[in-house]
Design a protein around this nucleic acid. Sequence first.
DNA 1: TAGACGTAGA
DNA 2: TCTACGTCTA
Lengths: 171, 171
Amino acid sequence: RMQVNTEKIIGPVPGIEVGDEFQYKSELNLIGLHFDIMGGIDYMNIGDMKLATSIVSSEGNGYIDRFNSDVMIYSGQGGNVKSKDKKVIEDQKLVTGNLALANSMKEKTPVRVIRGRKRLDQRGKRYVYVGLYLVEDYWRERGPGGNVLFKFKLRRASDQLSDDLDISVRD
Amino acid sequence: RMQVNTEKIIGPVPGIEVGDEFQYKSELNLIGLHFDIMGGIDYMNIGDMKLATSIVSSEGNGYIDRFNSDVMIYSGQGGNVKSKDKKVIEDQKLVTGNLALANSMKEKTPVRVIRGRKRLDQRGKRYVYVGLYLVEDYWRERGPGGNVLFKFKLRRASDQLSDDLDISVRD
DNA sequence: TAGACGTAGA
DNA sequence: TCTACGTCTA
């Protein structure tokens, strides 16, 4: 797949379909699906408001998200993630990516969702574009360490292919 | 470019030509030019001997290499590199990648060389495959911090395209 | 300058 | 588990 897209946009990326699969976050960047090569939440500024463009839910990094049929619970960023040189546990704050997701709820703008899962053979991950979602709700929780965590509830937009994503994402 | 190559080999990679250019080290991995997605020296075990397969000389990370026409001086790995959570300065050792390069000299096996340079627009780097080199010499030096550094002298193999690489690598 | 749901291999 | 010439944005 040789498409290259350097423009960050909200909504579908031309040429990319639900179920398309990638091997690296850097590929998501080249393709224009998700430009933040490390971060889970990508966003852009519309005027002076941050709006989320895409999120990556990836296995094996301390974040715990949930997928149930067309609803997902996505963990906010910051605070509680294991990091070699950073032992402190802090409250997550409603800034940058978390703020962008909250704004996306207010503005009812769609968010591209990419799901990264470990391969069965344990050789890296695969990232599958699972479609557009709308942020339906968010709230604060206390994490295991007592710190504040944000949780975002997203629902898959209905006007999309209804392929069985569990199959398309399965190894 | 959609070629994918998962087999690590010594020498030229089929389908890849001198001057071919890539945007990410992960692309070098997909293509089979250089499998170590972070490290500068990639190698393989032939029997119980490590032999270098490829090296990446990349700008802007504390290592200082030199390119002069068909000769390059490549810095060994370890010891003196700035790293956020690692302040200690240590002697480089003749192990792993450094040992592999030393063995490649003894065995006269070619090493693929990739040159990573910052883009003029400062948006990332570009990696150019500049061809096969032979390790001609290596020695120990003292670095600015007094620690031992390895330096490897490599000479470009003569039976290759003699395009002006300075042009092919220029922004 | 440092943070961020990175990756493969020893 | 840790290292390794990573890579983008704020």
